[in-house]
Every structure is written in structure tokens, then in C-alpha cells.
């Protein structure tokens, strides 16, 4: 009886996994197929397999559509934001965990409440502020906005990880003669590297795909990031579906590569604090 129950349970679980995989992987595979087909081919048979793949579309998208520039802008903004947010977040998390001060809980609540506000709520006031301080339509301004929006989540993840580093290590470093910042830099940060790396990766993926702040805060074509570039593939009256799909694939590629290389590290980093 018990033996019969296990295969049924296994089959149901497998079915669930297959359905979830199709739901998440299906659209991606479809876009991947579209990216290798021309728009007339797609309009004839939207769901067909790319029997005669047009790899040259990738070259065209890159050379004829400013993709190189958009890619560079995205890389610049996202890498800068990720580096800053990771460093600031790690310092804040370390500070909140290791230095109990009056108002510690209030500061933590204030920072983390940033995660609860939807970006649509902030966008108008943010636009006004950026305009007033002269950061509107600048890549630096967008970096600052990205840092501010990603900081709460970064602190939240790193704080729980840093809390699990034994206090004895910090005490030992103190007795070894190190000052507070050196202890953060030489002990907390390297030991917390799995979590630091994970938050960096998560932030990279989220910011690489970010659209709302970019579309509101950047207007010049020369400053557009990749998600904006893809949007401007869609002309006023007609949409080159094939090229949009190719553009999307180029945009997804870095994220895909990062995830393929570091998914295991990322999962380890996300669960490290939870299972100790």
C-alpha cells in the first residue's frame, strides 16, 4: 500500500515540475525561436521551429540599431550601481548587526520599509527631485536611483547572513590590532562573500532588466539602456517582431550567462544563513 502511494506522489510532483518548467521556459524558448526567424516567417507561422535560422539578425541588431551603445550604457549603469549598492549594503548590514545603538530598530525599519513602496508611487516625486538637482537625463542620476531602490533588499539579505558570523571572529581581529573598518573589510566582507556575491548577482539581474525608472529618467537616445533600446525597436505604426525578439535575446544573454555560471553559488548564498 505504502509502495503504491510513493509513485503516485512522485508522478504528481513530476507533473507539477513539468508544468512549471513549460510555463517559465516556454515563452523564453519561443522568443529564442523567434529571434532566429524573420518577421514575414513569423507572421506566416508564429509557432514554427526555426528550420532555416537567420543568425545574421544578431549582427544586424547589434550594428544597425545602436545596440552596442545601449549595451555599453546598461553595463556602465548596472555595474556601477551593483558595486555601490553591494558595498553600501554590506557596510550597513554589518553596522546594524554588530553595533547595537539607540534607535537601531527604527533605522532598520526605516531602511527596510523602502522595500514596501512600489516604484510607481515614487516615480513622480523622484522625477521632480532628479530634475531639480540636475541629475535628470544623466546616467549618474540613474545609478543613484538604482542604488537607492536596491539598497533595502541588499541590506535585508546581507544582514541575516552577517548575523550568523560568530562574534568571536570580530573580537579576535580586535585583539589582533585591527580597527572597525579594517575588521569589516578583512573579516566580515570576505567571510560574507557568498551572500555578497549573491546579492550582487540578484541586483545585476534586476537592474539589467529595469525599465520604469530608465524610461522616465532618460530621454536622450545616446543614454538609453538596453530595455529602452528594445522598446524603440517597436516603431510608431508597425512592429518588427523578429528584430524585437533578436534584441531581447541579446539583452537576456549576459544575465543568462551569469546565471548559468553562478546559479549554484547564488543558491548557496541565499540559503547559507537559513540552514546554519
Amino acid at each position: 500500500m505504502r509502495n503504491a502511494v510513493i509513485p503516485v506522489k512522485k508522478t504528481l510532483l513530476l507533473l507539477l515540475v513539468v508544468v512549471c518548467s513549460i510555463a517559465t521556459g516556454g515563452p523564453f524558448l519561443w522568443v529564442a525561436a523567434l529571434s532566429l526567424r524573420t518577421t514575414p516567417e513569423i507572421l506566416d507561422h508564429p509557432y514554427s521551429f526555426p528550420l532555416h535560422p537567420h543568425f545574421d539578425k544578431f549582427v544586424r541588431a547589434w550594428t544597425h540599431s545602436n545596440y552596442g551603445l545601449y549595451f555599453w550604457n546598461s553595463t556602465l549603469v548596472v555595474v556601477a550601481a551593483v558595486v555601490i549598492v553591494t558595498l553600501l549594503g554590506a557596510m550597513a548590514a554589518h553596522g546594524l548587526v554588530r553595533y547595537p545603538f539607540r534607535g537601531n530598530r527604527a533605522v532598520r525599519f526605516l531602511i527596510l520599509s523602502g522595500m514596501m513602496l512600489p516604484p510607481q508611487m515614487l516615480i513622480l516625486s523622484l522625477f521632480q527631485i532628479m530634475f531639480n538637482v540636475g541629475l535628470y537625463n544623466t546616467l549618474g542620476g540613474l545609478v543613484l536611483v538604482y542604488v537607492a531602490t536596491q539598497l533595502p533588499m541588499t541590506i535585508y539579505i546581507l544582514e541575516s547572513f552577517f548575523a550568523h558570523i560568530p562574534q568571536d571572529l570580530f573580537d579576535a581581529a580586535k585583539l589582533d590590532g585591527y580597527a572597525d573598518f579594517e575588521i569589516f573589510w578583512r573579516i566580515a566582507l570576505p567571510i560574507g562573500m557568498p551572500a555578497v556575491f549573491t546579492t550582487g548577482l540578484l541586483n545585476f539581474i534586476m537592474l539589467w532588466n529595469e525599465f520604469l525608472y530608465a524610461v522616465v529618467l532618460l530621454t536622450d537616445n545616446s543614454k538609453r539602456t538596453l530595455p529602452l533600446g528594445i522598446m524603440f525597436f517597436m516603431g510608431g505604426h508597425q512592429i518588427d517582431v523578429g528584430m524585437v525578439a533578436t534584441g531581447l535575446m541579446i539583452a537576456i544573454l549576459p544575465v543568462l550567462l551569469l546565471y548559468a555560471c553562478f546559479s549554484e553559488t547564488m543558491i548557496k548564498g541565499m540559503t547559507a544563513g537559513a540552514v546554519r
Binding site: 568571536d168 571572529l169 573580537d171 585583539l175 589582533d176 590590532g177 585591527y178 567571510i191
Partner: peptide, 29 residues
């Protein structure tokens, strides 16, 4: 401050720096 007392301590948990090898642990101070 602790760092200026010229006192060394061995902890119950040993408190070895996990990201450093034995040589670096010994040389850290």
C-alpha cells in the same frame, strides 16, 4: 582599546579566520 592592550586571547570557538590559511591566520596580527 583591546587592540592596544598587548593581550592575546584564545577563544572557546578558536575564532580562526575561515577564509585564511593557517599561515595567514598566524600572521594576521
Amino acid at each position: 582599546p583591546a587592540k592596544d592592550r598587548d593581550i592575546a586571547m584564545v577563544f572557546q570557538s578558536y575564532a580562526l579566520y575561515p577564509h585564511m590559511d593557517v599561515y595567514s591566520n598566524l600572521a594576521f596580527g
